[in-house]
Design a protein around this nucleic acid. Structure first.
Lengths: 218, 218
DNA sequence: CATCGTTTCAAACGACCGTTTGAATTTTGG
DNA sequence: CCAAAATTCAAACGGTCGTTTGAAACGATG
């Protein structure tokens, strides 16, 4: 039970890299298995199909991240005072972003993949994301609701949607911003990004609900 | 000069639809031309290659949106008082989101495509986006800077990055949120989304700059 | 050491890909 | 109205795709 696992890992690593770099359709099994240094048939032998390989690539990383999120959230609940909004946001955002520092767990490559697949409404993967979201959203929503008791639930949902957008976009794009800012913004400064993101998002979450404008009620 | 333009338009419409639905690699020229009801060779005849077809699909819509953005921004400058942050954000965000209502200009289909391609670091398209961004970013950055004189430029760049993330994610995903909110959030209520987004983003932009935490200065 | 289930491998499968060709057809301009 | 240019079309090009096959190599177990 040593060699097979080594092959599996090699394929998953290569798939993670190439799916992130070229997208699901853009990366071929031949490129993946050749990068992994294994025969092409090994991919179908171990994972059944290309789509299940993508699935395995995602679940390998997402699980631990979500566990870390829930742990951080649980720790907040154990304090004497009610959880602060900033703490909840950090519990939601930091575990995903910190992956970038931990190259052993896939690092920035997986961030890119996740941000990319998230924008990719690949039918079959919707189910995977929805089920993951239920785990996370189901726990974070009440926490947010408690930290923002005056915010109507519908507004909260929209704002969580915005939060996810900031997270996904920042995760998907690690280098573009560095270029357009001419080096002023450092995408490797994970803790700085978390700090900035939490500040930005907390303010957005606390924003007063905008009244319906001049336009009709619709 | 009638039939050729009709063919061009049919191909662009079909390409827009299928690129949005399945991604660049996922949509084939055969599917596109067949949807358009034209011969497959017409695609290469009129556009040269698949990549240039994608390019044409994007530029057809982006140009007018950016013009509208700059117009709205210019109008703000003509008022007696200094432009308000909310106005600038709306000028940046609303023209793109309002595409969703205007089915004649591609509607939600193009929103999806744009959000998708944006998350797709397709090498060759980076240039196109960077050049579009220079047009827009070059004009909006000073406006933001004037509305937020105390915000350091580096922080401003990060926050513009966050703004783009919210925009891209909301544009790319039109229906997912409706499902997970069990219908409570209506993705067709464009003006409501603009209102909520501007409120959220304005608060985020105005957030006090978070001091560096306990962690080292890095 | 022989056995049997597991894993690897080269080769091939049919399907679809983006692109090109050259002849037919339509449109244009004198 | 007719030559010339622009456009459409069926067909084929060489390649690559995801997947399957059946035999060879391997590993654990008795």
């Amino acid at each position: 039970m040593k060699a097979p696992d080594k092959t599996r890992k090699a394929i998953l690593d290569a798939a993670e890299l190439l799916f992130a770099e070229r997208g699901y359709e853009g990366a071929s099994l031949r490129q993946i298995t050749s990068t992994a240094g294994v025969n092409i048939a090994a991919a179908n032998y171990h994972f059944g199909s290309k789509e299940e390989l993508l699935r395995a690539t995602l679940t390998r990383r997402i699980g631990p991240v979500n566990e870390e999120r829930l742990e951080m959230l649980a720790e907040l609940g154990e304090r004497r005072s009610a959880p602060k909004l900033e703490g909840i946001l950090e519990a939601l955002v930091a575990p995903a972003l910190r992956l970038s520092r931990d190259q052993k767990r896939g690092g920035r490559v997986f961030m890119k993949l996740l941000g990319r697949i998230f924008a990719d409404p690949g039918e079959r993967l919707q189910a995977l994301f929805l089920e993951q979201f239920d785990q996370i959203g189901g726990r974070f929503m009440p926490a947010f609701q408690r930290a923002l008791p005056k915010l109507p639930p519908v507004e909260l949902m929209w704002r969580m949607h915005f939060v996810i957008g900031v997270m996904a976009h920042t995760m998907a794009d690690t280098q573009k911003l560095k270029h357009i800012s001419r080096g002023a913004c450092d995408p490797d400064d994970t803790e700085g990004i978390v700090r900035r993101m939490v500040a930005f998002l907390a303010a957005g979450m606390r924003a007063p609900v905008a009244p319906e404008g001049k336009g009709g009620v619709k």
